[in-house]
Amino acid sequence: MNKMEKALHELSEMDDLAAQDSPVHRLHPTAKLLSTIAYIAVVVSFGKYQLGALAPMLLWPVLLFQVSGVSVRTCFYKLRIVLPLVMAVGLFNPFYDRAPMLYLGGVAVSGGVVSMLTLMLKGLLCLMASFLLMATTGIDSLCASLRRLHVPGMLVTLLLLTYRYVGVMTEELAVMTDAYHLRAPGQKGIHVSAWGSFLGQLLLRSMDRAQELYGSMLLRGYHEHFHYAPVRPFALPDGVYTLGCALVFLLLRRVDISQLLGSLLVR
């Protein structure tokens, strides 16, 4: 199995995760989608120095990992490529914002370091929440929920096709890299001189395949309504879950739990 085939296998594992059964998996997709959106909105609304106040937001993904049976290790393994990019966002903050903000055992910690850590934690929390949504819902149910929330069909189709397109592109990449290495023995990676034509061919080939794939969907009645996605009515527990999550998130946003606990301990 080459690297690309492994990637393809990993992609299909997301569908496997979504097909598992747990109280989180059984929740209505719309409930999960709305609570995730609320969570991400609250997480990003924290100020850049509110690291302490942000920390308790970690409780929600931890709870979901526990209840859904999705392992934290799987999450970090699957996010291993994108995670460093997100974490790198605030990397330069310590250079720009050097004013001491707090002292930890006599060591001054600058505002830049705090804001960098806040940004990193925000990125991590948002990624974990998105991963949990995908790992417990599945792309088709998610798209069906988006349509139910009146998100334009074109946008939802784009999302669905992008998801499917990743698989198609990876398959084509696997075939092309195999063909390349068979005629370039002993060479590590793809030589710079071939990058242009390689990428061009990859784009053309995967576009052709994506076109066929979309044609196949159309021929089997696809019309942006996702009737085929597993559905059940939005029940009372789903409503309670959504509302409960939203209220807890707002509470965590309004009340600095870390500070509260800290002041209780100091007293």
């Binding site: 299909s12 066929e212 196949s216 969907m217 009737h227």
Partner: peptide, 26 residues
């Protein structure tokens, strides 16, 4: 009903069952 030359392009759902349900449910 159209059976494509490349079955990989026809089968886009995760499992055979889901792929077969796709058309009738649509």
């Amino acid at each position: 009903g159209f059976v494509l030359q490349n079955s990989d392009n026809q089968m886009f759902m995760p499992t055979v069952y889901e792929d077969m349900m796709f058309g009738p449910l649509n």
